[in-house]
Amino acid sequence: MSASFASAQGAAREAAAAQHYPQGALYVVATPIGNLADITLRAMHVLLLADTVACEDTRHTQALLRAYGIDKGAAQLLAVHQHNEAEAAHHVVQRLQQGQRVAYVSDAGTPGVSDPGARLVAAVHAAGLRTVPLPGASSITTALSVAGAVAHSGEQGGFVFAGFLPVKNAERAAVIEQQLAHEARCVVLLEAPHRIEELAKALGVLGQRPVTLARELTKQFEEITTQPAEALTAWLSGSPQRSRGEFVVLLHPTPVASDDGDSLRVLRLLLQELPLKTAVRVAAEITGASRNVLYDTALQWKRDGAPTEAAAGGDADG
């Protein structure tokens, strides 16, 4: 056991043992995303109590447990990862039906969000068995809490979780240009260090839209920065260290134009005679308003069925 956690087990028992922990239940346990001190007392108590610990990587989890002074034999660790999740879920269900308490952990953070675990939980539900969530660390909420990227109300309120984008450049670019560029709310992405530069390059089409990069969250070299999308590649190239570690990437909300300004009156008039993209470009040139804001506003009108475009005009240029 790490000397830093010598008294943690006692504190975990004292704080959490009074609660009832039923047998035959799957405990979905959040674990630290980098800083070992972010374990919760209840998580530690359940890991001590569990008959089986299901996990992505048994070696990684064994090292984590030993850091907290939790000793589990090899037979008590069960690998459940993306390549065997369906088969392993069957074994978990069998152990639950035998009355075991099974704790499931991913390599880091909250299972079942981006990490494996969703299929396991679904299988447990399908078998009529109980699941118990133990909240804790999550890279998604950690990044959101400090980025100032979530609007509190209106059409821009909340956020959209998109996770990992396609690996292939053309598919990634299509998602960004056809979907994310027109999403007014904050968008949460995840990316691995060996692909962050390609993602940054692809996001450059978003121009001045603010993007927060959060890497190595909770660790010694944690770094969080907000840059215009078009400046991300330059920022990453500023130091070799900046491309290391797992990334949470937040696309900030797109500004929405107010309908009491000249720019929107001009845009409405132009849309009656011109295709959407042409109308947006001309309105931006006439009024000096942001082309991105006008474009997003015109798209919203179109989605809402607002009568802005002439029937014969259409959207001929895309």
Rank of each mutant, 00 (worst) to 15 (best):
M1Q: 09
M1G: 12
S2D: 15
A3L: 06
S4L: 15
A6H: 00
A6R: 02
A6Y: 00
G10D: 09
A11T: 10
Q19V: 09
H20N: 07
P22T: 04
P22S: 01
P22D: 05
L26V: 00
V28W: 05
V29W: 00
A30C: 10
A30F: 11
P32E: 02
N35A: 04
T40G: 00
T40A: 03
L41G: 02
R42A: 02
V46S: 01
L48F: 03
L48Y: 03
L49M: 11
R59P: 01
T61S: 12
A63W: 03
A63Y: 06
L65E: 12
R66C: 07
A67C: 07
G69E: 01
Q76M: 06
L78N: 11
H81M: 07
N84I: 02
A86E: 09
V92K: 07
Q94N: 08
Q94R: 15
R95S: 03
R101Y: 04
A103Q: 10
Y104N: 11
D107P: 12
T110F: 06
P111Y: 09
V113I: 15
R119A: 15
L120M: 10
A122P: 06
V124K: 09
L129G: 00
R130C: 13
T131A: 08
T131I: 12
P133C: 00
P133Q: 00
A137G: 10
T141Q: 12
T142V: 05
V146W: 04
A147M: 04
V150P: 04
V150Y: 01
H152Q: 09
S153D: 00
G158K: 15
F159H: 07
F164C: 06
L165W: 13
V167G: 04
K168Y: 03
N169K: 06
A174V: 03
V175D: 09
I176M: 08
E177F: 05
Q179H: 10
L180W: 07
A181E: 05
E183N: 08
C186Y: 05
L190H: 01
L190Q: 02
E191M: 12
P193I: 01
P193G: 10
H194T: 06
I196K: 06
E197P: 00
E198Q: 08
A200K: 02
K201P: 15
K201H: 15
L203W: 15
L203R: 08
L206F: 03
Q208I: 13
Q208D: 15
A214K: 13
A214W: 12
T218S: 09
E222W: 05
E222S: 05
T226V: 02
T226D: 02
Q227Y: 08
P228N: 02
S237N: 08
P240M: 06
R242N: 10
S243L: 10
R244C: 02
P255Y: 14
P255I: 13
V256Q: 14
A257P: 01
A257I: 12
S258W: 10
D259V: 13
G261P: 08
G261W: 12
S263K: 11
R265Q: 08
R268M: 14
Q272D: 11
E273F: 01
L274I: 08
L274W: 06
L274C: 11
L276N: 02
K277R: 10
A279D: 07
G288S: 11
G288K: 12
L294T: 05
Y295E: 13
T297Y: 00
L299M: 14
G305S: 02
G305E: 06
T308K: 03
A310V: 11
G314A: 12
G314R: 03
D315K: 03
